[in-house]
Amino acid sequence: MLEEKVKLIYNSAKSAMSAAIDSKSLYDLKVKFIGKSGELSLVMKEMGSLPKEDRPGFGKVVNKYKKELENLYNTCEESLKNKELSEKLAVDTLDLTLPGPHQPVGSVHPIPLVIDEIVDILARLGYSVRTGPLIEKDWYNFEALNIPADHPARDEQDTFYMKPGYVLRTQTSPVQIHTLENESLPLRVLSPGSVFRSDSDISHSPNFHQIEGLLVDKKVSMADLKGTINFFVKEFFDSSIKIRFRPSFFPFTEPSAEVDCSCPICKGKGCRMCKNTGWIEIGGCGLVNPKVLTSAKIDPDQWQGFAFGFGIERMAIIKYGVSDIRLFSDNNSFFLKQFV
């Protein structure tokens, strides 16, 4: 009798669970039939009315049905959940072409960008950065660099004058003297930074940037200088770039040379950047004039040196194809954004 009742519960549970349409109603059925106070549990409580010897058999039967129903529940639940998930996914979408919360980008200005690149290349050869004041004493900017008061070379550097005895430095070279005064030898240093000349047009800025290298050691030759610049130029532009030295004049170096590199834009074939010559002037260099060493109280019979300098704007113009030098000081965010 009781067993039939169990069978009946089992059958109706089985058909109800199989017919359940969602996991919620399936769960309700689970509670109704096999939960702690479900119908099967209630039948178990009636077991006391059976004879003692029948009770284990009955228990086994009930547990068998319960187990079967639990398995059935698990099977149904999985398929219902899968069905429900796919229904949910069918409508749960997000337009990922929408922008996220705004996070502004930023960039390093091309001038320090180029300076850092140059520093990083030459640091591999043992060069370290040294800096100096922008308002410089006449002595450091001129006299100590073998440019006495009435030297014709002063005419070529349109100087901004400050109080008597002070100028806005016209070149980064005064850092050479500061360094030689303060550091022990031998040494290799780089001095990047602002310099000033009183002219302003499409290709000249009154406040532009240079980087200068100085090496002082016991024996230093033009070949060392050429090798160093050659290494630098290949690293900075690319390995196909060639350099050439042209004789020139700087009061603080002797011998002196202008450095040209084969045009990185047209690879030497001739273009607007190189004025169809295939070569681009990138800087000046030379062996340190013994008079400069003497100015810094260094014995030129004991020590020799070389120095080289590049215009940062010029390097940036060549490397990035910047068309107008004024773009560097206009600080238009659309221009700067391109260096992100």
Binding site: G106, S107, P206
Partner: peptide, 10 residues
């Protein structure tokens, strides 16, 4: 998110 600018010193 900041752009670095470089202005004249004067």
């Amino acid at each position: 998110g900041y752009y670095q600018s470089v202005n004249y010193n004067f």
